[in-house]
């Protein structure tokens, strides 16, 4: 994201504003019966002191971030305190400036102390202006970020839908069902029903952020039934889910993408039978979704197509929805490849 930086404007504006203030002060005091040295020092003190204390304020704002508005009383208190401290510092700067001439001239110490209140007022205005400007800027930035997040979610949803309608799966299933119509018409009818359910689910839920785990598992069953007519005895599938987890919510089609990935790399490429097992349980505070398949990692890396997209998609959706609270990890526990998603609940 590119925010146009306006920081380079700060110093020119800051310096010229204080210069102008000092000049105005100098001109105004010219009419007063005042020692010229004191008059010069007065204006120098205004310029230097103002410049220094406000720049220090800016330094702290930059370091700790602008005070956020959710607690307005605290904001006001902090700004008042800051102005007071700045005014005191400013006066100390004046004193320091006048120190060398203290023996020669009468220094208007009392007048300076009286100035504490107007100085605080000036500083408060400066601080409010500076903080306000940054708060508005931050607000704009967070708006832009919000749009970006939304765009990411949309992209993820579209990606999920695309993965769902994996053309190999789609056309192979249709081809297998066509053969089944001759061999086992009843099973063929069931498959067409399952196929419809699966696609309806994909179309309806792919834009949802989360779905209930029980629905996701039901859909996974349909998906596996269709896979089984493709792979028959080659595919051994088991699922175990802790009943307590069934009401938890997860991003839609995550399980399906993981199983599809497991089939592609564990079953489709091997000549013998392969095993896929899905386990859903709590592990501490986290919901754990594990998909295991027989296979070897090295072979996995050779193949690059929708798998990469599918897993990337899961990762980005998890990150958008749960931030640091979710993770996706790979491991190899021969003869299995294990993909685990953990979501802190």
């Amino acid at each position: 994201m590119k925010i146009i930086r306006k920081d380079h404007l700060f110093w020119p504006v800051q310096i010229s504003a204080w210069l102008i203030a000092a000049l105005v002060n100098f001109m105004a005091q010219q009419r007063l019966p005042m020692n010229p040295t004191i008059r010069y020092l007065n204006s120098i003190g205004l310029f230097a002191g103002g410049l220094i204390v406000t720049s220090v304020f800016r330094y702290y704002v930059k370091k700790y971030g602008p005070v956020a508005p959710p607690r307005p009383l605290r904001v006001i208190a902090l700004l008042l305190l800051a102005s007071f401290l700045q005014a005191i510092t400013w006066i100390l700067i004046y004193f320091a400036l006048f120190l060398p001439v203290a023996g020669v001239q009468t220094v208007p110490y009392t007048e300076m102390l009286v100035n504490l209140v107007p100085m605080m007022a000036v500083l408060l205005v400066w601080n409010l202006g500076y903080s306000g400007y940054h708060l508005i800027r931050r607000y704009h930035r967070s708006e832009v970020e919000k749009w970006q997040l939304e765009a990411e979610v949309q992209k993820a949803a579209l990606g999920a839908l695309k993965a769902q309608i994996n053309p190999h799966f789609l056309f192979n299933s249709l081809n297998n069902i066509r053969a089944l119509i001759l061999e086992d018409p009843q099973l063929a009818r069931e498959m067409i029903t399952g196929f419809s359910e699966l696609f309806r689910y994909a179309l309806q839920y792919s834009e949802h952020k989360e779905v209930r785990l029980s629905e996701e598992i039901k859909m996974l069953d349909d998906f596996v039934k269709l896979l089984k007519i493709q792979y028959e005895g080659k595919l051994q599938y088991t699922i175990s889910a802790d009943p307590a987890t069934l009401y938890e919510k997860i991003p839609p089609m995550v399980l399906q993408l993981l199983v599809e990935n497991a089939v592609k790399h564990g079953i489709a490429v091997s000549s013998g039978a392969g095993e896929i097992s899905v386990e859903i349980s709590y592990s501490g505070r986290a919901l754990s979704l594990t998909v295991k398949n027989t296979g070897i990692m090295a072979r996995k890396n050779e193949l690059e197509d929708s798998l990469g997209i599918g897993l990337q998609n899961i990762r980005s959706r998890l990150a958008l929805l749960y931030g640091q609270d979710a993770s996706l990890s790979f491991s190899e526990i021969p003869p299995f490849i294990v993909v685990e998603i953990r979501i802190n609940k």
């Binding site: 081809n175 001759l182 493709q230 028959e232």
Partner: peptide, 30 residues
């Protein structure tokens, strides 16, 4: 073809082509 049903489907389609005789089937590369 690796899918039994896909092989069967192709056999069914080939029944309309008596000039083609299917003499073997294989389900994996080896």
């Amino acid at each position: 073809e690796d899918s039994r049903l896909a092989r069967q489907e192709l056999r069914a389609l080939l029944r309309h082509h008596p000039e083609v005789v299917v003499t073997g089937e294989a389900g994996d590369a080896q």
